[in-house]
Nucleic acid binder design. Structure first.
Lengths: 253, 253
DNA sequence: CGAACCCTTGACAGAAATCAACTAAGGTGG
DNA sequence: CCACCTTAGTTGATTTCTGTCAAGGGTTCG
C-alpha cells in the first residue's frame, strides 16, 4: 500500500466518518495490487471474500448467463464495488474485469462485516452507500423499461455532457461496444442508432460526441431527475457509467 | 394500531434485532391505516416522509416517465418498501398504489434515520435489508438484459412454482397486465408468448398455470441462482414479485 | 508485418410494439 | 334480478425495432 493511498481511501464517503481505530483495523488487513488490463478480478457466483476499491484505472462490472454477457456498470477511481455481496456474505451477482491497467485495494469481507458491527459511524456510512447503490440500479432498470433505445442513448449522451459541465463536445469515456451493452443493445444497433441520431441534434465522429442541437436532443431524451440522477451523493460505488471525467478527456485524444 | 400488529412488525428481519427501547420509539410515531384498492399511496418525486410497511393486502411499486408506466415490484405482507429513499431523505424513485384493500403502517422517515444512528443493532439490520434490496434489483436488471421475453416468462413461471413448493399447478398471484409490465413487455406480447409456451411445457388456463413438462420448461428458462434467487434472506422489502403464496391460491379460485 | 479487435454497413429473419376489434367477466345501478 | 358499463384478456393485421450473420475498413499491439 502506498503512502498517498490511505488518505485517499479515508476521503471516500464510505470511510470518511468512521472511527480512527476502526479505519486502522480495516486497513491492517488490506492489500493493494496493480492488475493488467482485461483481467478477470472476480467471477459471478464466487464467494465474496473482498471488498474492492479502485484507486487507479477502471473496472467493468458485467453479468453472464447462458453464453450471453452484459455490462452492468463501470467503476472508476475512487470507488468501491460489490459491497452488498460482502455484507451478506453471499456470492457475487456480477463479474468484474479491469478495462485498463488498474490499481486496486482489497479489504477482507469479514473485516468489513466485523467493523460495521462495532463502529456505528461506519454502519451509518455503509447504509448511505448501499442506499445510493440501490437507487442507482433502480434508475438503471427504469431506463431500460421505460425508454426506447434511442432515448437511452440520447439520455446518456446528454448526461455525459452535463457531467463534463454542459460542454457541447466531449470524448466517449468507454468503448462503444461496452456502451451498447450497458444501454442494453447490440453494438450494431448502437452504431445504427447513433447515425440516425444525427437528425436529432448530435453528431458522433469516432469517439467524439458533438451536440449540434441541444434543445432537439433534450426533447428526444426528456431527461428526468428520477432516472438520470443525480443523487449528488458522493461515492459512486459501481453504479452508473463514468462520473466526473471533467474535461471529457479520459480516453482518446 | 391493532394489538396483533406490533408483534408482527417486530418479527420482521428489519426490526427483529433492534433494542426494545428503539422499537418503542419507532412505534410511538407510527400510525396504521387501511386504504381501498387502487389508491395512490406515494408518487415518485415526492419527498420520502414515511417508511411504509404492508400488513395486509398488496402494494404495487411502479414508475412513470413521459406517459409510459412500468411495474417495478409488488410488496406483500409483511414487507416494507422505499427504505432507501427514507434513509437518504431523497425523493421517491417509484410510485406506489394499492392493488387491493390494504392495511399499512407508516413510520416517519426522520424517526427511522434517528433510530439507526443510536441503535447499532438496528443499523446492522438496515444494512442487511438494503443489501438484499440492492441484490434483488440487480437480479431484475440482469433478467431484463440477459434474457428474452420468453425466457423471462418461463423463469417467472418456474420460480412461482418453486415458491409454492415445486407444484405442477398454481394460480397466478397477479394480473397478467401487471405481470407483463413487471417482465418488461406489453400485455399483448405476454398473451401471445404464453400461447406459444404451450409447446415448451406449460399451459395457461385463465389465471391457472399448469406445468406439463417441467424438464422442457426448465431447459428453456435455464434458471440461475444469480438471477432467480434466492437470497434466502427473510424480508422481501419491495423487491420482486410475490414470495410465499404457499398454495398458489391468493387470487382467483 | 500480421493478428486481433473494434467499428461499421448490408441483408435478412425474428421479435416486439401498436392499432383495432372482439369476448368475457365483474360490478353498478336501476 | 337484469341491463349496462367497465375492464382484463385475447386475437389479428401491420409496422417498427432489434438481433443475427456476414463482410470489409481501420487501428493497435505484439
Amino acid at each position: 500500500m502506498r503512502a498517498h493511498e490511505l488518505p485517499e481511501i479515508r476521503r471516500l464517503p464510505l470511510f470518511r466518518d468512521m472511527r480512527h481505530a476502526s479505519f486502522e483495523t480495516l486497513m491492517q488487513g488490506a492489500y493493494a495490487q496493480t492488475f493488467p488490463a482485461g483481467l478477470e478480478l472476480i467471477r459471478q457466483g464466487d464467494p465474496a471474500d473482498f471488498l474492492h476499491i479502485v484507486m487507479e484505472g477502471a473496472v467493468e462490472l458485467y453479468s453472464l448467463w447462458s453464453d450471453r454477457e452484459c455490462t452492468m456498470a463501470v467503476v472508476q477511481p475512487v470507488g468501491s464495488f460489490i459491497l452488498a455481496a460482502c455484507i451478506r456474505d453471499a456470492p457475487y451477482l456480477m463479474s468484474a474485469r479491469t478495462l485498463e491497467r488498474s490499481r486496486l485495494v482489497l479489504l477482507p469481507s469479514s473485516d468489513v462485516r466485523a467493523v460495521f458491527r462495532t463502529d456505528p459511524e461506519f454502519a451509518v456510512s455503509v447504509i448511505g452507500e448501499l442506499a445510493g447503490c440501490y437507487r442507482a440500479v433502480v434508475r438503471h432498470a427504469k431506463g431500460l423499461k421505460l425508454r426506447t433505445s434511442r432515448e437511452r442513448i440520447a439520455s446518456y449522451l446528454l448526461r455525459q455532457s452535463r457531467l463534463a459541465g454542459e460542454v457541447a463536445s466531449y470524448i466517449l469515456p468507454v468503448e462503444k461496444r461496452l456502451l451498447a451493452s450497458y444501454l442494453g443493445m447490440t453494438p450494431e444497433n448502437l452504431s445504427r442508432a447513433l447515425k440516425t441520431l444525427e437528425a436529432d441534434g448530435v453528431k458522433i465522429d469516432g469517439t467524439r460526441v458533438i451536440i449540434t442541437d441541444r434543445a432537439r436532443l433534450t426533447a428526444l431524451a426528456r431527461p428526468d431527475q428520477l432516472i438520470d440522477g443525480p443523487d449528488p451523493d458522493g461515492s459512486t460505488a459501481g453504479v452508473s457509467l463514468p462520473p466526473a471525467n471533467v474535461a471529457g478527456l479520459r480516453r482518446g485524444a
